[in-house]
Design a protein around this nucleic acid. Sequence first.
DNA 1: GCAGGAACTGAAAATGAATTCAGGACGCCC
DNA 2: GGGCGTCCTGAATTCATTTTCAGTTCCTGC
Lengths: 187, 187
Amino acid sequence: MAEDTRERILSACERVIARSGLRGFRMQEVAREAGVSIGLLAYHFGDRDGLLEAALDHVNESAAIRAEAPGEQPAPARLIALLTSEFGDDEGIRDGSVAWNELRASAVFDAGQARAVARSTADWQQRVVELVRESLGPQGADPEPIALLLTALVEGLSGRWLTGQITAAQAQDAMRDAAARVGIRAD
Amino acid sequence: MAEDTRERILSACERVIARSGLRGFRMQEVAREAGVSIGLLAYHFGDRDGLLEAALDHVNESAAIRAEAPGEQPAPARLIALLTSEFGDDEGIRDGSVAWNELRASAVFDAGQARAVARSTADWQQRVVELVRESLGPQGADPEPIALLLTALVEGLSGRWLTGQITAAQAQDAMRDAAARVGIRAD
DNA sequence: GCAGGAACTGAAAATGAATTCAGGACGCCC
DNA sequence: GGGCGTCCTGAATTCATTTTCAGTTCCTGC
């Protein structure tokens, strides 16, 4: 069925991007990974640009979905879980992070992508704002700058992790340490 | 003179990367920007890969040099100046940041580049460690995690800035705010 | 003043990837 | 069973870019 195939192609795109980056994003490669012919890519997505755009939207959505998962714990624990969930040796997590990282880098040169990235990031940061507010209580410090600090830090640490400068565990520790410094502790 | 020309070509590469990214890094484009023929690029650098490698080394060095500039102010002011100097509407600063950003993204897929990035980053972070130590005094908190926090935050904010999510001035404010939260103030 | 080498040019050839297209398979309705 | 539309294939073609190379300029030492 067609919808199924489209989905299979898009997740193949994500794997190809995670493995070889945007520069290694070849239609031949995607076709092989998805187990379809190269012509089918054109049939469904028009051309390379169309495929790439759909793939990046897909990456963007996957990231948004991953950021859901409410949970029943108290706010500080939920917040720390949300922030540290970006790092992990799990193949799926790393693939998603790498793809998202590529999308972010590419958005510097593409206003359309930049808009999509900005929207996703703003949603995510808003969720952090609310969890920070809940964690610190109504009398606590202004949550906005804290949320900016925490989310931008996740992105910075993610770069360090993906380039092998630190491990996923060290990134998580650094994240917890930062949260503690702004008054947020899981225990 | 040849050395002069090489330098001219490499700084043309940096401008091309800043303008169009690694994906838009065309030899024709570099040749035009540098005002030389395309054949000369091959003469000096062998092939596209050789040129790109030299260009990224050059970006790396430029970034390292930019991080120098000691100054005569007290340690906290020097530290904040070092951290906020990454952001600015100055064309040179933005070009350097964009190029460095591309290098960092590309290093995810290239172990050699990752090593170079890691070395530069470690040097920079070490300078931050020392300024943090000086700022907080010998009885102060452990400077290492603070330096990791501050430098990773610079990288995260840089991504936000380059994708148009925040302005350079907002990035600087966020940086000063973060420094204040870990006990470092310019005044 | 000329032999030789380094710096440099630009157009032709090679390469590598995207796009196009003629057609095959399959299911569905009449 | 035959027409028809959707999904799909893969080889031929086109296109963009890099690589190569024959040749020019200009300097330097003899």
